[in-house]
Simulated scan of single mutants.
Amino acid sequence: MLKFYHNPISPNSRRVWITLLEKELLFDLVEVNYLDSEQFKPEFLAINPFHHIPALVDNDFNIVESLAILDYLEAKYPIPAMLPTDAKDLAIVRMVQLATVNELMPATVPLSPVMFGLPGAEPEKIEQSKRKISAVLKFFEGLLDHRPFFGSDSITLAESVAGSIVPWLPRGGVSLSEYPKLNAWCDRLTVRPAWQKTQTPEIIEAIKSRIAAKMAQMP
């Protein structure tokens, strides 16, 4: 059976968790507690020497880096398909994945205190963050067409990746009202069981408490 090492506060983990659920795969869910430094324990370092999550173990094969894990799952478990075969549609999915990882996620960091009602928000950095986020959201809005998902009539790995970040943005004061197609896309995602299961109120409170604990440890 697959063994999935994750942490519920990590969007990198969540994208894999969502994909496992969408593909209806059987897997063991193993939480790695960062506050207790479990990522540095020898048994986890044997799986991932870079000491971060997520990680997936399939029998004696270890896979690290979330996008590599997604590709592995798609190649080994191709039904239901979560990557289109048309060249243009595949490019759309890949662009959404990489723009989320390289542009959107870094831009959201200053919004973390706002998202969870914690002190430490810096107004100037927040405004810079919102400008960067706006550029990504406009890009995403332009990639959505008449179909319900990015480049497809069915859910893809673009949803697994961007869908673990974009629906959170209103919590940070970023309205999606200017992006009607993207807003409707979020609504379609957040009612799906995979999104519901991986973002419960308990998980949200866990994120808030762990961020607060981390901030308390800062000098």
Rank of each mutant, 00 (worst) to 15 (best):
L2K: 04
K3P: 04
Y5Q: 04
H6R: 00
P8D: 15
S10F: 10
S13A: 13
R15D: 05
W17C: 00
I18L: 15
T19M: 15
K23V: 05
K23S: 07
K23L: 05
E24N: 13
L25C: 08
L26S: 13
L26W: 05
D28E: 15
L29Q: 10
L29D: 12
V30A: 05
V30I: 14
L35G: 13
F40V: 06
K41G: 03
P42G: 06
E43M: 11
E43Y: 04
F44Q: 11
L45D: 09
L45H: 08
A46S: 13
A46P: 03
P49H: 07
H52P: 02
H52C: 12
I53K: 01
P54Y: 10
A55E: 08
D58R: 09
F61A: 01
E65P: 06
D71C: 10
Y72A: 01
E74C: 08
A75K: 15
A75S: 15
Y77H: 11
P78K: 14
I79T: 12
P80R: 11
M82R: 06
M82T: 11
L83S: 14
P84V: 06
T85C: 15
K88R: 15
L90C: 11
L90T: 10
L90E: 07
A91M: 09
A91H: 05
V93M: 14
R94E: 04
M95G: 00
M95Y: 13
L98K: 13
A99R: 11
A99E: 09
T100Q: 06
V101D: 11
V101F: 01
A107N: 09
T108V: 10
T108R: 04
T108F: 05
V109Y: 14
V109P: 07
P110F: 06
F116T: 00
G117M: 01
P119R: 04
P119A: 03
G120N: 00
G120S: 01
E122M: 12
P123D: 09
E124C: 07
K125P: 10
E127C: 03
Q128P: 09
Q128T: 14
S129N: 03
R131N: 15
S134Q: 09
V136N: 02
L137G: 07
F140K: 04
E141S: 10
G142Q: 07
G142E: 04
L143R: 12
D145G: 14
D145L: 06
R147Q: 12
R147S: 10
P148C: 09
S154I: 05
T156S: 11
L157E: 13
L157H: 15
E159H: 08
V161T: 12
S164C: 14
S164P: 08
P167Q: 03
L169Q: 00
P170M: 03
P170D: 03
G172R: 08
S177E: 06
E178C: 05
Y179M: 03
P180Y: 11
P180M: 02
P180V: 01
L182W: 04
N183K: 08
W185A: 02
R188Q: 05
L189Y: 11
V191Y: 08
V191D: 00
R192Q: 10
A194E: 02
Q196N: 09
Q196A: 14
Q196K: 12
K197V: 08
T198N: 05
T198I: 02
P201N: 08
I203V: 14
I204E: 14
E205W: 10
I207K: 01
K208Y: 06
K208C: 01
K208S: 05
S209E: 01
A212G: 06
A212Q: 12
A213R: 12
M215G: 05
A216W: 00
P219Y: 00
P219I: 02
